[in-house]
Amino acid sequence: MQRLEVEQRTILIGLAGSHGYGLSRPGSDLDYRGVFIAGKPYYLGFDKVEQKEGGWDTESGIFEFLNGQKDTVIYELKKFIQLLAGANPNIIELLWLKQYPVKTEVGKYLIQNRRMFLSKRVKHTYSGYAFAQIKKIESHRKWLLNPPQEKPTPEKFGLTGERPLSKEELNAFLEYLYALVRGKIEYLAEAQELHQLLTGDIDYKGLLKQHNLTDEVLEYTQNLTNSRGDFIKLLQKSQHYQNALREWNAYQSWQTNRNPTRAGMEKQSGFDLKHAMHCIRLLRSGLEILRSGEVFVDRQEVGDADEFMAILNGELTYEQVTALADNLVAELDRAYSDSLLPHHPDLPAINQLCIELVEMQGW
């Protein structure tokens, strides 16, 4: 959809990111997030739209404050509500911001019903997003302390005289392997819980693609897939090579695109301070939601903004940050048991809210 059409049907735009958290500094980017309700062709026809995240510098619109703001994303209502129901931290906070440059009557009604989306799921999503920050910290720390020295070659992974499988070929085989494993347990009554874990709760397909097949499982994989032994060995070597190549490319991109000031702080402290701050913020926010049933976005209002700025300024060591994260994870576990929030959101009620919002907006 064109920018003008989206903005004409926008019900809410908030200032998120560092400004929303009360942690902005001079030069901090403006991160606008919003919600719009698509028109009749998208609800009754074949057209589909989930979000608008480009065109702010090339298309004309009605909200001048968005001109040139490339970090802006405006979600279509149905996509937005699906993410809310899934307790997506970046989406939940949009309904609890202080600043809304755009807030229509429909947007106000959505905000009035924001508690409908809070459930104990936040424990898993907020800690999951926090662990994603930890993973980035560890990757960058490894690069800071022991940077890769040279681009990997197939020969170094035993691929002499044979072409390594491409990423697409690897993924196609691993998709097939995942489908076989899933099929083995799909119709076993005693394995229903395992099947749910495999297909819903954990992205095992992603794990299969990310981690190399170990020597211990090669024979089983060969038998399960009726593959030749030489192919399975080629598969494993190719996995090692492609993962090393992906690591090298990620390192090169990180080196090229780093903010010079942030890079200097990382080098001095030995870890990525921004990711560390977001890790602690996410864990603390999840804990607050479980305990209070409220979302506190602005850390100035909470009163702990100075603590987060201390992390950003490199005043805490890597060991202090990880110890703080460990303590918060333990607190999250306790708060989860005591929380009065429901285990899951009321999906029929959320569905009815979506209908009401669309009807309020009209075609």
Rank of each mutant, 00 (worst) to 15 (best):
K70F: 02
I92F: 01
I137V: 15
A179S: 15
I92C: 00
E59C: 14
R163L: 09
N67M: 10
L159D: 06
L144V: 06
I62R: 10
R182S: 10
K136I: 13
L77G: 06
S166M: 07
A85M: 03
L95P: 07
Y178C: 07
V122G: 01
L145H: 12
G61I: 14
L118N: 04
P89T: 10
F131R: 08
S166K: 01
F117Y: 05
S127F: 00
D57N: 09
K108Y: 12
D71F: 10
E53R: 04
G55M: 07
A172V: 05
N67Q: 14
E150G: 08
I111R: 02
L97C: 03
E169D: 07
I74P: 00
S60I: 10
A87N: 15
F117C: 01
S139N: 14
P154N: 05
L97V: 13
H140K: 11
K184P: 08
K135I: 01
E138D: 15
K108T: 12
E64D: 14
E138C: 09
D47L: 10
I92M: 02
S127C: 04
P89I: 02
P152L: 11
I111H: 03
Q82H: 07
L95M: 15
L110G: 05
Y126Q: 04
P147H: 02
A132P: 05
Q69M: 12
T72H: 12
G107Q: 04
E169K: 07
L144P: 14
E50K: 02
Q149G: 14
G61E: 08
L77D: 05
V49G: 05
K184M: 09
Y178E: 15
K79M: 03
Y176R: 13
V106N: 05
W56R: 06
I91W: 03
S166P: 13
L83Q: 03
Y100D: 08
K79W: 00
Q112G: 00
S166N: 02
G55Q: 12
V181M: 11
E53S: 11
T72Q: 06
R163H: 00
E50R: 01
D47C: 07
E50W: 00
F131A: 05
G183S: 12
R114K: 15
Y176K: 12
P101H: 03
L177F: 09
L66Q: 00
K120Q: 06
K120P: 14
G68V: 02
